[in-house]
C-alpha cells in the first residue's frame, strides 16, 4: 500500500529517471553488445513489475494439457451423457482454456485493469450472442420446435 503511494507521488520525470537507472543496472555485458535491447525494450521486467515466471508458464502448460485431454474424453461420452450437459461442459472448458491463455501467456495479468476490461468488454458481446444461440439450439434439440410455439 505504502509502495503504491510512493509511486503515485513521483513526478513523471522522476519515474523516467528511476526507470532509466534500473534499466542501466539490469543491462548485462552481453546486452551492451547487442545495444541492450533485451532489458531496455522491456521496462516492466527491468523495473521488477513483469519478471518472467517460467515455473508458472509450465504449470499453465500442464493445466491446458489436462483440460484438452478432459475435453477429448468428454466428447467421447456423447452416448452416455445428455447433450445439454455435454455442450455446457465442453464450452466451459474451452472458454476456461482461452481465458487462461489470454491471462497468463498474453500477459493480461500484468496489464492495468482498464486494459484488461478494454479487451474483455468488446468480446463479451459475441460471447453473449453465442450463449443465446447455444441455449436456443439446445432448447430446440431437447423440446423441439413445438417448445418454441412454432
Amino acid at each position: 500500500m505504502s509502495e503504491k503511494k510512493t509511486e503515485e507521488t513521483k513526478t513523471p520525470a522522476k519515474v523516467v529517471e528511476a526507470d532509466a537507472a534500473v534499466r542501466k543496472a539490469a543491462v548485462t555485458p552481453d546486452d551492451h553488445g547487442s545495444h541492450g535491447h533485451a532489458a531496455a525494450g522491456h521496462g516492466h521486467a527491468a523495473a521488477g513489475h513483469h519478471a518472467p515466471n517460467r515455473a508458472q508458464y509450465w504449470r499453465i502448460f500442464f493445466v491446458l494439457l489436462v483440460l484438452t485431454i478432459l475435453e477429448v474424453g468428454v466428447a467421447y461420452l456423447q452416448h452416455y451423457v445428455g447433450k445439454t450437459a455435454l455442450v455446457s461442459c465442453l464450452v466451459g472448458m474451452a472458454v476456461t482454456k482461452a481465458a487462461i491463455v489470454a491471462f497468463f501467456y498474453m500477459h493480461l495479468n500484468h496489464e492495468s485493469k482498464v486494459m484488461r476490461w478494454s479487451v474483455a468488454i468488446p468480446l463479451m458481446f459475441p460471447a453473449l450472442y453465442a450463449f443465446i444461440l447455444i441455449a436456443e439450439g439446445t432448447y430446440r434439440a431437447v423440446w423441439g420446435l413445438k417448445g418454441l410455439g412454432l
Partner: peptide, 13 residues
C-alpha cells in the same frame, strides 16, 4: 533521461 541512458531505449511514461 532515457535518451541519454541509451540511444535505442524508449522509456514509455
Amino acid at each position: 533521461a532515457a535518451a541519454t541512458d541509451h540511444d535505442h531505449a524508449l522509456v514509455y511514461p
